[in-house]
Design a protein around this nucleic acid. Structure first.
Lengths: 340, 340
DNA sequence: TTGAAAGCGCTAACAA
DNA sequence: TTGTTAGCGCTTTCAA
């Protein structure tokens, strides 16, 4: 049977509290008693139950992380950021992934809360229903919380970049390269970033007196096969083809490049392609990808740090906004366009 | 303040045990009492503390997953497999990543055990020191455990593929394509798979009467820049160049392809490149990668399932071996070589 | 079918 | 400096 604190106390001829004090490195016990206790602990290889401690001390030293997709390079980086910050700060992380299901997202919140994580870092799903009941509840309970991505109408801790501005900058970059016919493969509703990037795209066109062409805006699921498919359709239509396509993310951009290559449309000579996220693989694809850097690792890290700060200052209102910087990464998929 | 089971009991005019029975869907309470209790629970939105339950019931319904690198496509897939199986079986997963440090690996095991996870799925680091003390301890305590990767001299539950055979098959494939000068960029010590794949490589050469060329075997870190670097060196040496290179993993293979492309050595016409793992991106790189499929998702899934089975049959000895199938994925990076 | 009571392995006043 | 005591919020006998 596993040893308990009482066993150690008995073995060391002291009370449980003395052992507890030693275990937690607190003052209040003489040097020699301490070392005697320590010796016993070592001798029996005693591993105290953090579970029992959590119940008594009302903190588990673990946080819950809820992402949308495990198997997605963006979230992987983000997860690493959260994990690194947490290990450094002495927290464990309970992993949750909604895999795009709002129902599961709520379920995960419930089980993580029932497991009494000290706080939650959530990359929230933006569903059509989008009632965010779980969010209201959490906020009502003043539950330590950090959102990785903005949810309108809810005031809480948020870490994000300025997606509208980032998309604006990307499109402006394309315009400066001489492009005027710029398509946008827009992100899905559930992303929350999709709408903002679309806004930035449109604003950039407007500000540069370029008319918005409806046919040039096509919403896609944010994966390579969807980008491929969308590009195939877009470039086989009998409309004037765009000379550049700004994609919701790198995965989509890779699909676009593949489709164009297959259609013998040279990238970037004929058509420039720009992605978003700056995933590691962007530099290894057929045509190294020009893209916008999303600091996923930093977002995760900042989010976890902010959460721990919130946990340690429970009186602090939940409304800190951290906006990280984006930047354009120039590689080979964008060409200087000289209009004929 | 958060509600407890006693609050609910009082409000429903019953005992705590009655509430407990209802919460756990157990028989022993009349239909009407049950519904009365349920009503109160619902009304107050009571969320029982799984933490307290865990302490009393001696099981946490969570397992620990220890991988080597979060930000690595192979482990991401594996993680997803573990996560999927666990959610399905009602377990939470506490994430741990050694990030290649044996010291951290042991620390993680300790904290996860102190948090009383019901079991551990570990992708063990093979360090030079490789004492595996933590493993001995776990085994001594008969702690529910599944290893994702074989550790020699320790009998426990293992899920893996036959790495030697897989490498053997890959090299045989290259030989059948007419190659005889085949290099191998071998994996690192910590992988555990590295040595086996090297063995398979050598055995395949021996069995086909091809002499083993020392210069053709170069150990690398399993990342793209390292593969790039190694290829640059290998192909600038004044030795007879290989016509094919079999890489420890896809990441390395991608680096090799980039290096060769840069050196104006056509892939696959001049030199064929073969990877290992079959990561998703393999099909999107410059030259779609021919590789060996490592069923990472299935390994994770099978590992978690086996662990839960072990947890539910604590008397069962820890020595089940599950060997999953590998297979060769033919794409464009291998060319039929016709010796001049 | 129900309730009382002991206990899971700790922490944290409070007394001694 | 040390020990006693009463929880933390559940589960689980055991009686009623």
């Amino acid at each position: 049977m596993r040893m308990t604190i009482s066993d150690i106390a008995r073995l060391a001829n002291v009370s449980k509290s003395a052992v507890s004090i030693v275990l937690n490195d607190k003052p209040g016990v003489s040097r020699e008693t301490r070392s005697r206790i320590l010796a016993i602990i070592k001798k029996y290889n005693y591993n105290p139950s953090h579970l029992a401690k959590s119940l008594a001390a009302r903190e588990t030293k673990s946080i819950g992380l809820i992402i949308k997709e495990i198997d997605n390079p963006y979230f992987t980086k983000l997860m690493r950021g959260v994990y690194d910050a947490c290990s450094q700060l002495g927290y464990s992380v309970l992993l949750g992934s909604s895999e795009l299901s709002p129902v599961r997202e709520t379920e995960i919140v419930n089980t993580l809360v029932s497991k009494r994580v000290d706080g939650l870092v959530i990359s929230p799903l933006h569903s059509e229903e989008a009632n965010f009941t779980y969010l209201s509840n959490l906020l009502n309970d003043n539950y330590p919380l950090v959102l990785l991505g903005t949810v309108t109408n809810y005031s809480t801790n948020v870490v994000d970049i300025d997606n509208t501005k980032a998309a604006y900058d990307a499109v402006t970059y394309l315009i400066q390269k001489g492009h005027t016919r710029i398509a946008h493969l827009a992100g899905p509703l559930w992303s929350g970033h999709g709408q903002k990037r679309l806004d930035g795209y449109q604003q950039a066109l407007i500000d540069h007196k370029i008319s918005i062409e409806k046919n040039y805006i096509v919403p896609v699921e944010p994966y390579t096969p969807d980008g491929y498919q969308a590009a195939k359709e877009l470039f086989s239509k009998t409309i004037q083809h765009p000379t550049a396509v700004f994609c919701y993310n790198d995965l989509v951009a890779i699909g676009v490049i593949n489709a164009l290559t297959e259609m013998k449309i040279d990238v970037p000579e004929k058509v420039s392609v720009m992605g978003f996220d700056n995933i590691d693989f962007g530099m290894y694809v057929r045509i190294p990808l020009t893209t916008v850097q999303m600091p996923a690792y930093e977002i995760g890290k900042a989010g976890a740090k902010l959460l721990v700060k919130q946990i340690n200052h429970s009186s602090m209102p939940l409304n800190e906004k951290v906006t990280l910087k984006h930047k354009i990464i120039e590689r080979d998929s964008v060409f200087k366009h000289t209009s004929k």
